[in-house]
Write a protein that binds this DNA or RNA. Structure first.
Length: 800
RNA sequence: GCCGAUGUGGCGGAAUCGGCAGACGCCACGGACUUAAAAUCCGUUGGGAAGAAAUUCCCGUACCGGUUCAAGUCCGGUCAUCGGCACCA
C-alpha cells in the first residue's frame, strides 16, 4: 500500500508547530542533552540537498534522546552576514537586510517541510541588532584584555571581493570564497590575538571526543615547533636573531637569509653597496601573489647584501647575508641561519649561488642531497658537539647558547593572529571610535549595538576602504572619552564573528541584559554533540574554541571547551560522483524530492545513502527502495493480530531494539535502517505482526520517519505524540534465539553448518559437528590434532 | 614533500573481540497480475567448473609476503585514490 505522504507530512508538521511539541523545558533539574548542527548561511539558492544529511542525523539523535527522557536543546538559526547576500543586494539594488529576511523565510519553510524537531522559539539570527550587540560586546572585552589590536601589516587581499582575508580564508593561494587571486597589501587592520591561545588550543583537545582526523588537522594548522633563537653578530654591529629547529647544526651555517621585508635592511641601506639590486628584489617579491610564491617553489632566488656579514656566535666565522623570499617575514624572526648540508631548501639555494656546504651530521652524502635524518645522525665538524646524537647535541648547544647569552630555546607556532577587519558593508561594525586626542576609544557598552547605517549604496571601494567610510553622517561622531569630534571605525567584522559564540546564545536567546544568563549557560554548556563539515576545522571550529576559552577566562562561562564531541559528515555528490554545482548541472533540489517521495523518504534516504562520514553520490534509483520500505511499513496494520511479542519474532525484535539504539549512538544510521528493513522482511515471511511488535517498530522508526509513524500511532487509537513516547528497551538475554546455526570448518575451510542450542557446551557442539555427515566424511581416517569451539560462532576441527 | 584517511560484486555499501565475506538497498534477468504499461508481488543474482537434477568442487576483500586452527580484519612491504597542509627554517 502506498501511503499519502503529502497530506500526512503537512498535518503533523502543523500539529507539532501548534502544540509546540519540541519546546525545550526550562526545568534545569532534568538531565540535559545539547545537540548542535552548524547553522546555515541563508543563501538565495535555498536549501541544498547536502544540508539535510547532518540535519537529519542530528534530528534523529535529538529525537531519540528526547524519547529517552532527556531535556534536549536542538536549536536552529541563521549565520546571515556575508558576501553573497551583499553582492546580490548590490546587483539588484535591494538592501541586504531585506534579501536576508527573504532568504531566511525560504530556508525556514524548507526546513519545516522536512519535519525537524527544532525549538523554533529559540531561533537566532546573527544580523539581528539584538544579537550584534553581544558580538560587539565580546569584541570590546577582547579589546579591554589587549587581545584585539589594530596594526599596520601586510595582509591577504582578495582582488575580486576587494576585501582583506584571514590566513584561514586563503586556500592554495586563492580566495576561499570566490577563487580569485590573493595579493599582499599593507593595511591597518584589527587583529585578534589567537596566538596567545595556541598552546591551550592544542593541549585542551586532549580528552575531547573529537574525531581523530579533526584533532590532527587542528594541531597541524596550529603548527607547534620547538627550536632555538640564536643571536648572530654582524660586521655593522647590529645583532640579527634567527630561529631554527636545528640548533645542533650551528657549526654548519654557511650563510644567513633574511626575508625581503626585514627591518634591518632599511637601517643598513647606506652600507649595502648593491642597494639598488636589493631594492629591486624587494619590490619584485612584494608584487608576487601568494599563488605565484607557491608556484615557484623549486627555483630559489635572492640577492646577497654586499657590505655586511653575519658572525656565527659559536666560532666567530663571518658568513654572507642574503635576502630571499623563501624566508617568510611572518614566521619566527624573519631571518634564518642556512645549513645547506642538512636542510633541503638551504641546499637548493646553496647550489644556485655556489655556497659552501659543510657536513656537521654524519650519515648522509651532503654533496648529493641534504641529510635531514635526525634519528640516526651523529655530529661531526662541530667542536664540542662532535660524536653526539642529534637530540643530545640540541640540548648541549642550547645550554651553551644560554650560558653565553647567545640565544635560548624557543617554541614557535605557524598559527598567526586572526585578521578581524573586513572592508565590506554587510557585517557587524567594529565598535570603536578614533579620536585624534585619545586614540582608539571603545564605544561604551550601553551604546551597543552600533548599527549599520541605512543607506542606498554599499559597494566596496576601489581604494580597499570600507564602503562605510563614505557615509560621513555615520562616520562622524564624538569621542566617548573627551567629547570632541571623532570618527567611527568603518571596518566590519568577518563572517566568522557571529558563529564564534552562537552556541551560547541558544542557551538563552532572548536575554537583553547578558549574552546569556549564567544559569542557562551552566545548565546547557558544553554542547554534548556537535556535527559539522570538515571544511570548518581550521576556521569556525578553531575560532569558536578560541572565543569560548576567552569567555571562560573572563568568567562568562564555566567550561574550557565548548564542544564535548565533534563529528563530521561526508558530502553528498552529484549522480556522476562529482561535487554538486550549478555549472556541472548535477544539482538535486530537496523540494523536488519531497514533492515526489515525501519528507520521510528524503530523510530515510539521506541516512541510508552510505557511511555517514564519507562522501556519497546521489542515486535517484536507490531512493525508491526507501519509499518501498515505508510503503511496506504503512501496510503492516493489514496483517496485525495479537498482543505482546510473538514467539517467532521475540528474539528479532529485541535484537532490533539493540541494533537501532546502538547504531544511532554510533552514527551508523545506514545499518540501523538496514536492520529495520530486514525485520519487516522477517515479518512478511512470518505473515503477521502483533500490536506490540508494530508499536515497537514504529517507535524505533519514528526518529527517522516521524510523519508516517505519528500517523500510524494515531490510527492505532492514540491521542499523544509518538515523538514524545518512551524509547523501547531490550532484554539482552532475549536477543539470542534458543537454537543457533553455526559454521563447521575442517582445517579452517567451511564444510558444513549445524544447528545447536544457544548454550551448548564445547563437547556438545563438537559432537554435533562430528555427527554431521559431511564433517564425518572429512575427518574419516584422519588424526584429529585440535578441536576449537567459539561459542555461538564456529567449530573448527584440525586434522592431519 | 609532510600529515591523515580509504581501497570489498555491475552500483551505494554490510561484516562488535580475527570466527559462515557480500547483510540491507539499487540495478539487471526470469515469472505472476494486466488488453498493455506503470505500480505491486514471487524468484535468481561475486566469478569459474562439473552435473539431467538435488547438489558438489575451486577461486575470490588493491598487490606481494608473514603470523594464526582461522585474516577483509593483525604485522612488514608495494601500488592507487581522496582530504588537509605546504619554502613555517
Amino acid at each position: 500500500m502506498k501511503y499519502e505522504f503529502s497530506a500526512i507530512d503537512k498535518k503533523w508538521q502543523d500539529k507539532w508547530d501548534k502544540k509546540k511539541a519540541f519546546k525545550v523545558s526550562e526545568d534545569y533539574s532534568k538531565p540535559k542533552y545539547y545537540t548542535l548542527i552548524e547553522f546555515p548561511y541563508p543563501s538565495g539558492q535555498g536549501l541544498h540537498i547536502g544540508h539535510p544529511r547532518p540535519y537529519t542525523a542530528m534530528d534523529i539523535v535529538s529525537r531519540k534522546k528526547r524519547m529517552e527522557g532527556y531535556n534536549v536543546l536542538f536549536p536552529m538559526g541563521w549565520d546571515a552576514f556575508g558576501l553573497p547576500t551583499e553582492n546580490y543586494a548590490i546587483k539588484n539594488h535591494i538592501h541586504p537586510s531585506i534579501v536576508t529576511e527573504k532568504n531566511i523565510a525560504h530556508f525556514k519553510e524548507q526546513l519545516k517541510s522536512i519535519g525537524y524537531s527544532f525549538d523554533w522559539d529559540r531561533e537566532i539570527n546573527t544580523t539581528d541588532p539584538k544579537y550584534v550587540k553581544w558580538t560587539q560586546w565580546i569584541f570590546l572585552q577582547l579589546y579591554k584584555k589587549g587581545l584585539a589590536y589594530k596594526k599596520e601589516m601586510s595582509v591577504n587581499f582578495c582582488t575580486s571581493c576587494k576585501c582583506v582575508l584571514a590566513n584561514e580564508e586563503v586556500v592554495n593561494g586563492v580566495c576561499e570564497r570566490c577563487g580569485s587571486e590573493v595579493v599582499h597589501k599593507v593595511k591597518s587592520q584589527w587583529m585578534l590575538k589567537i596566538t596567545d591561545y595556541a598552546q591551550r588550543l592544542i593541549d585542551d583537545l586532549d580528552g575531547l571526543d573529537f574525531l581523530e582526523r579533526i584533532k590532527t588537522q587542528e594541531i597541524n594548522w596550529i603548527g607547534r615547533s620547538e627550536g632555538a633563537e640564536v643571536n648572530f653578530g654582524t660586521t655593522l654591529g647590529d645583532e640579527v636573531t634567527v630561529y631554527t629547529t636545528r640548533p645542533d647544526t650551528l657549526f654548519g651555517a654557511t650563510y644567513m637569509v633574511m626575508s625581503p621585508e626585514h627591518a634591518l635592511i632599511e637601517k643598513w641601506k647606506n652600507n649595502i653597496t648593491n642597494i639598488d639590486d636589493v631594492v629591486k628584489y624587494q619590490i619584485e617579491a612584494s608584487k608576487k601573489s601568494d599563488f605565484e610564491r607557491t608556484e615557484l617553489v623549486k627555483d630559489k632566488t635572492g640577492v646577497c647584501l654586499d657590505g655586511v656579514k653575519a658572525i656565527n656566535p659559536v666560532n666567530g666565522k663571518e658568513i654572507p647575508i642574503f635576502i630571499s623570499d623563501y624566508v617568510l617575514a611572518t614566521y619566527g624572526t624573519g631571518a634564518i641561519m642556512a645549513v645547506p648540508a642538512h636542510d633541503e631548501r638551504d641546499w637548493d639555494f646553496a647550489k644556485v649561488f655556489g655556497l659552501p656546504i659543510i657536513e656537521v651530521v654524519a650519515g648522509g652524502n651532503v654533496e648529493n642531497a641534504a641529510f635531514t635524518d635526525v634519528a640516526t645522525g651523529v655530529l661531526c665538524n662541530s667542536a664540542f658537539l662532535n660524536g653526539l646524537e642529534v637530540a643530545d647535541a640540541k640540548k648541549t648547544i642550547i645550554k651553551w647558547l644560554e650560558e653565553n647569552g647567545k640565544g635560548h630555546s624557543k617554541v614557535n607556532f605557524k598559527l598567526r593572529d586572526w585578521v578581524f577587519s573586513r572592508q565590506r558593508y554587510w557585517g557587524e561594525p567594529v565598535p570603536m571610535v578614533w579620536c585624534d586626542d585619545c586614540g582608539w576609544v571603545p564605544v561604551p557598552e550601553d551604546q551597543l549595538p552600533v548599527k549599520l547605517p541605512d543607506v542606498e549604496h554599499y559597494e566596496p571601494t576601489d581604494t580597499g576602504e570600507s564602503p562605510l567610510s563614505k557615509i560621513t553622517d555615520w562616520v562622524n561622531t564624538t569621542c566617548p572619552h573627551c567629547g570632541k569630534p571623532a570618527k567611527r571605525e568603518t571596518d566590519t567584522m568577518p563572517q566568522w564573528a557571529g558563529s564564534s559564540w552562537y552556541y551560547l546564545r541558544y542557551c538563552d536567546p532572548h536575554n537583553d541584559s547578558e549574552l546569556a544568563s549564567r544559569e542557562a549557560l551552566d545548565y546547557w554548556m558544553p554542547v554534548d554533540w556537535y556535527n559539522g563539515g570538515m571544511e570548518h576545522v581550521t576556521l569556525h571550529l578553531l575560532y569558536s574554541r578560541f572565543w569560548a576559552k576567552f569567555l571562560y577566562d573572563i568568567d562568562i562561562i564555566s567550561c574550557k571547551e565548548p564542544y564535548k564531541k565533534r563529528t563530521a559528515h561526508g558530502m553528498i555528490l552529484g549522480e556522476n560522483g562529482e561535487k554538486m554545482s550549478k555549472s556541472r548541472g548535477n544539482v538535486v533540489n530537496p523540494d523536488d524530492v519531497i514533492a515526489e517521495y515525501g519528507s520521510d523518504t528524503l530523510r530515510l534516504y539521506e541516512m541510508f545513502i552510505g557511511d555517514f562520514e564519507k562522501a556519497a553520490p546521489w542515486n535517484p534509483a536507490s531512493i525508491r527502495g526507501c519509499k518501498r520500505f515505508l510503503d511496506k511499513v504503512a501496510s503492516l496494520p493489514e496483517i496485525m493480530k495479537g498482543q505482546g511479542y510473538s514467539e517467532k519474532l521475540e528474539a528479532s525484535i529485541h535484537k532490533l531494539i539493540k541494533k537501532v539504539t546502538n547504531d544511532i549512538d554510533n552514527m551508523k544510521f545506514n545499518t540501523a535502517i538496514a536492520a529495520m528493513m530486514a525485520f519487516i522482511n522477517d515479518v512478511y515471511e512470518v505473515g503477521s505482526i502483533t500490536k506490540d511488535e508494530l508499536v515497537t517498530l514504529i517507535t524505533l522508526l519514528n526518529p527517522f520517519a516521524p510523519h508516517l509513524t505519528e500517523e500510524m500511532w494515531e490510527n492505532m487509537g492514540n491521542t499523544t505524540f509518538l515523538s514524545l513516547e518512551k524509547w523501547p528497551e531490550y532484554d539482552e538475554a532475549k536477543t539470542v534465539e534458543n537454537s543457533i546455526e553455526i559454521a563447521v570448518q575442517i582445517n579452517g575451510k567451511l564444510r558444513s553448518t549445524i544447528t545447536i542450542a544457544k548454550d551448548a557446551s564445547k563437547d556438545d557442539a563438537i559432537a554435533s559437528a562430528k555427527a554431521d555427515p559431511k564433517v564425518a566424511e572429512g575427518i574419516d581416517r584422519k588424526t584429529i590434532v585440535k578441536e576449537i569451539y567459539v561459542p555461538g560462532r564456529i567449530v573448527n576441527i584440525v586434522v592431519k
